[in-house]
Structures are given as C-alpha cells and as structure tokens.
C-alpha cells in the first residue's frame, strides 16, 4: 500500500511540516510499508475488546487548589526566539 501524495500533503499540513515533491512520494511509500506491517493487527479479532484507558488502572489523581510559585517574566521568556513588551512575539496573526 502506498499513501497518496494528496494524503501525505494533507497530513503534512495538519503536522505543520513541508516536504518536497520527491520527499512526499518517498514518505508515501515509507508510511505505506509501515501501515502494511500494522495490518497484522487485523489478524486479531478485537470486536468487543475494551480499549486500554490507562495501563495501570490509576484514577482520580488530583492536586489541591493552592497557589504555588510562578516563573518571572524574564524566566518565562528566556528561551523565546523573539519577544517584545514582556510577550512572545510571532508573525502577525490575521483575525
């Protein structure tokens, strides 16, 4: 099975990745090969089997509503590729 160029492009768009034409074709083949292998799952009938919700059956883990230490503005922005006026800066977002 090969994933079509259109599908690869659609998924790339959702992933915010871009590929050249050659890369797109190759990605389609590689994904197809993995999905062919994944098809071994179809050999097992899972009708009515519960999907694993959580591997350990742990539930109800909560924290108390108590205020803790926040980062300073400088710490929060320390890794920012671009910052201005105490904020992260991105290319203009059109509303």
């Amino acid at each position: 099975m090969k994933i079509s160029n259109e599908e690869v492009t659609y998924v790339a768009d959702l992933s915010r990745l871009e590929f050249s034409e050659a890369e797109t074709a190759r990605m389609g083949e590689e994904l197809g090969a993995v999905l062919d292998y994944v098809a071994t799952l179809n050999a097992v009938d899972t009708t009515g089997v519960k999907a694993t919700e959580h591997i350990l059956n742990v539930q109800n883990v909560f924290r108390e509503d108590e205020v803790g230490q926040s980062l300073s503005n400088e710490e929060a922005l320390a890794n920012a590729p671009e910052a201005e006026s105490g904020c992260f800066k991105v290319p203009r977002v059109i509303e």
Binding site: L17, E18, A80, P81, E82, V90, P91
Partner: peptide, 23 residues
C-alpha cells in the same frame, strides 16, 4: 518556534514560520 527552541530564519507569515521551523 514560539516559546523556545529554534525558529527558522526565513518565512512568510505564521503558518510558514511553523512549517519551516519544524521542517
């Protein structure tokens, strides 16, 4: 490429910034 990590050097607009930085 917004809060940390490497942002692409050249891009046009937000979505392109995402795509280029990640790619």
């Amino acid at each position: 490429g917004v809060r940390y990590g490497v942002r692409a050097k050249e891009y046009s607009g937000l979505i392109d910034m995402y795509r280029k930085s990640r790619s």
